[in-house]
Write a protein that binds this DNA or RNA. Structure first.
Lengths: 328, 328
DNA sequence: TTGAAAGCGCTAACAG
DNA sequence: CTGTTAGCGCTTTCAA
């Protein structure tokens, strides 16, 4: 087995307290004994047992992250950002995943707490009041990213609605006669937390009010490819699709291409998120960058503040940015 | 604070030992007291402190995973697989990330050990003998995925060489006059563990020996786009590119498209890995599926065997499969 | 069937 | 400056 403070104490002929003082750089110990102990520790490859330390101190320097589905680019990019930011403060990150399952979600949070994480970063798929209530009972600080749960629960993200409004206006100003908001998650509104998509939808509708002469339509179905195709083929108007996620846009583009239709010639299309798959896509998709890495970074920073006992704002907005493409 | 076994004992008027026996489903306790304790535990929302349990038992039911760069699709897909498989055995997974940094890599392993994980799954960027030696000293079972470190260190992956050979032959049989193996990581051979890419390269070369009349070339540079373009433009032969990763293939396709060149008309191209970005790409890229999810799953299974004291094979091969596309 | 006591490796309050 | 002691919450051996 590995060497403990007890071993070090015995070997160095000092008390365990002295060993601790040396290891943790505390005062109340002479430089010579400190050096002696540290040298010996180094020599024997001493390593702090974080379990024991955590148990004794009541904190673990561990933060837990719960997200659904890393296969989603969105999360993959964010996780790196979170990990890096936390590391810079000496914290360790425990990333856990589930597949949009509410029970699993809660279970993961529980298990992280069982392991006594000091704080949590969550991107929940749950949103019901019961879940909000559950969160409120948690004994550790936490912060929500992406899918807001309730307004009294700390949250960091971008202003989805405003971003969607601006995107919509960009499309509208290109003289399309019809704009279709494509948002399949909307049909899961009862089942999941799709806050971001709802906000984007609101932004779309709000913006469209400024353009009464433009036809507005919404597709809220996982059969969106067929529905969109239907619309595009049957209408004589210049049509653009505003998709609530880049993946939907890419899917549509592929589908339309199969019918010989090209953007921007035959239709306009815009995504949302700016996932990095777009790098390989031609024509370059117009979209909105959701600043996912910055969101992750901010989440960690806010959590640290919280851990240090500081009050943090409930609503934290990060800047998004429009990405010019060739499809509008 | 939360309720402990001590609290339960006091409240139920029994000893802590009895509480433990009830909670852990051990025998040596009457059904009635057991029920009484469990009911009370439930009522008070008792939760085992895994830190204390881990400390006392010397095992944590935790497995650590170290990978570089989740932004890579390869890992994102694999992590889900690992998490799911581990969960099914009651283990908890701690995923940690770094950015191809050897020091960070070792540091992460150390920290996971400090938190006393029971086992490790690693996809290392290091490969030197020193690292291998370091791994051999670890006191917990571990398994390597993807980048093999040494032949005495347990490893799970696909037969990269054989897969690359078969892919090469597929290309060769389409009557190309020149085949270029595009493998930028090869120029990092001194810096990183690029075992998989090396194996793919060997497979390519071995296969090409069977086709002496076909021109074979290798690009081992991060300037591969320009070099490939150069080759394609300057040679009159029917040329195909065999890329050691789908991303390189997508990059080339985009670059060539910019020059008005299309696959398969103007050149052939094949990728490797079958990343899911391919879903959105047209024409459909021919590639090899590296069975990444199965690899992750197997890694967990093998680790469990190891945790249970069983011997595991050092070399564990998972089946890959060719993916027919339109670009060859 | 039940309980007392020691211990996992560390920290922290208090004394010398 | 140094050491003694108790304790974090759980497990485990041994005795009743």
């Amino acid at each position: 087995m590995s060497v403990t403070t007890k071993d070090l104490a015995r070997i160095c002929n000092v008390s365990r307290t002295s060993v601790v003082r040396a290891l943790n750089n505390q005062k109340g110990i002479s430089d010579s004994t400190r050096k002696m102990i540290l040298d010996k520790a180094e020599e024997l490859g001493y390593r702090t047992d974080m379990l024991a330390k955590g148990l004794a101190q009541g904190k673990t320097m561990y933060i837990g992250v719960v997200v659904f589905d890393v296969r989603n680019r969105y999360f993959a990019q964010m996780l790196s950002a979170i990990e890096n930011e936390a590391k810079s403060e000496g914290y360790f990150v425990n990333i856990t995943l589930h597949e949009k399952n509410k029970d699993q979600e809660k279970e993961l949070i529980q298990r992280l707490l069982d392991y006594r994480v000091d704080g949590l970063i969550l991107s929940p798929v749950s949103k019901d009041e019961e879940f909000a209530e559950y969160l409120r009972t948690l004994q550790v600080p936490y912060i929500i990213i992406g899918n807001k749960v309730a307004s009294d629960i700390p949250y960091v993200g971008i202003d989805e609605m405003k971003a969607a409004m601006e995107a919509t206006r960009k499309i509208a100003e290109k003289n399309y006669e019809k704009i279709v908001f494509v948002c399949p998650p909307l049909c899961d509104i009862e089942k999941e937390n799709i806050y971001t998509h709802i906000q984007r939808g609101k932004g779309f509708q709000k913006a469209m009010q400024l353009y009464p002469h433009i036809d507005a339509e919404i597709i809220a179905s996982w059969n969106y490819k067929n529905e969109a195709l239907q619309i595009l083929k049957s209408s004589k108007e210049r049509t653009a699709f505003f998709c609530s996620g880049d993946e939907y846009a890419l899917d549509l583009m592929k589908c339309f291409r199969g019918e010989g239709l090209r953007s921007p010639k035959d239709y306009g299309i815009m995504g949302f998120d700016n996932i990095d798959t777009l790098l390989y896509i031609e024509p370059k998709l117009s979209t909105t960058d959701n600043a996912v890495e910055e969101v992750g970074k901010q989440a960690v920073r806010l959590l640290f503040k919280s851990l240090n006992g500081q009050e943090i704002p409930l609503k934290n907005m990060v800047d998004y940015s429009a990405v010019e493409g060739e499809t509008i």
